[in-house]
Design a protein around this nucleic acid. Structure first.
Lengths: 229, 229
DNA sequence: TATAAAATTTAGGCTTATCTAAATTTAAAA
DNA sequence: TTTTAAATTTAGATAAGCCTAAATTTTATA
């Protein structure tokens, strides 16, 4: 195949970048296996589409994929995912700091900006922003070297309306709590969107996997460890 | 067709935007007919591909297209083209003013940024830049209203190395000059890229239609009216 | 104006990323 | 452990945007 405007970056395209990013996020930033259905669910693509792409990414050595057994990122794949996340967070920060966007408005725009190809651009943006190590949320911005400070210390309760995250852990791991989570369809790597926060009692209306609406108490929201995405 | 993340903007996609922008530029910012081959040549796509897209854009009422006879923009198409150009120039200005890019480096990046969908984003960027009316080149930035100050007062000689333009007119229209231009394959709407400028005599090495290299004298370069693109 | 050359369109293919429906494999339940 | 349900994959289809090769139309030339 020929590329008309060949980029300095490898030949990873938009769709592939989105899959890599998703796998990174759903695996809790790491190397856990991510299932086809988790990806399908998150990206709102059909499982069969996901399977196709997993094969493709596997052929490119960006993921390790075993049929019927999900996938995880190779070092090369993780590098690419982190590059995209770095871009995403830098752009978000730019939008908030310099273009007066509020935090919940920026995600969709950054989702587009993160795919602009230019190493130089992103390095200049990094400089312009003063080499930030974290975005306004406190989430780490991967460095040029791909170094990434892992964190798992944010709770659902700290998110603002409109924000999205993936569950990466629980503070309280009593079986009653876990059972409750199970009942309302929340498990590790479940993605959650905050729809509304009620000031009077701190309860939170959330959407689980973009499917089920659910209200959880302040107590619950404080015990859910998450990674914003 | 269904759009997953439906944008506030109409349903014009990247490829379509590029065609509209190209037609706008090649028609001398206006309503002159642009031929299939001119578009094909400019975009480095095959003529048959162009025909396909012209049909599509015609169906969407963005251009007026008559078989074997080229196309020109409808008001709706012109609006869209101007929106893209507005975004392109605002981003270019941002890159130059705030990210320390030099002018010739920004085109390719702006080419990507111009397709990011968000009215709000571009209005905020406009504000951030202080509502500029022209880019560092002096080329007009269309306003939100789509108003566009037409200019045709720049010459090839004023471009820097690496910059591209389309010929929109000549200062000297003597037949010898026109004949000379003809001989070296330059005509109205021909696109020209400046490859090198020689300081000692002001001559300019150019690439014509991305095909022919040619050196022209300072005299010639000062008599070619162009629109940077 | 007839004919050759150039421009344009049509017809038919290819690739990518999707999808649906059916088959297969794995996991859960009885 | 058999059976059922869920997850996953395969097979085959579609739409976009591009391509090549062949047909058609327009333009230029003799």
């Amino acid at each position: 195949m020929r590329w008309k405007h060949l980029n300095e970056t490898s030949m990873i395209n938009l769709a592939e970048e989105n899959y890599l990013k998703t796998i990174f996020n759903l695996s809790g930033n790491g190397k856990e296996n991510v299932s086809t259905s988790a990806i399908s669910d998150f990206m709102e693509n059909k499982p069969s589409s996901v399977t196709d792409m997993l094969k493709k990414l596997s052929d490119k050595s960006l993921i390790n994929y075993k049929r019927y057994n999900g996938a995880y990122l190779t070092p090369a794949g993780k590098d690419e995912a982190l590059k995209v996340i770095r871009k995403h967070r830098l752009w978000e920060l730019f939008l908030v700091k310099h273009l007066a966007f509020s935090w919940h408005e920026v995600h969709e725009i950054a989702e587009q900006l993160e795919h602009v190809k230019s190493e130089l651009l992103i390095d200049r943006l990094d400089k312009f922003l003063g080499y930030p190590s974290s975005d306004p949320h406190g989430d780490p911005i991967p460095g040029i070297d791909g170094k990434y400070r892992l964190i798992n210390n944010k709770t659902l309760g700290e998110l603002a309306e409109g924000e999205r995250c993936v569950l990466t852990g629980v503070k309280n791991s009593s079986s009653e709590f876990l059972k409750y989570l199970n009942e309302i369809n929340i498990s590790l790597n479940t993605r959650i969107r905050v729809l509304k926060k009620y000031a009077f009692d701190g309860s939170v209306l959330i959407k689980i996997n973009e499917k089920h609406r659910q209200t959880v108490s302040r107590e619950v929201s404080k015990n859910l460890l998450i990674t914003p995405i």
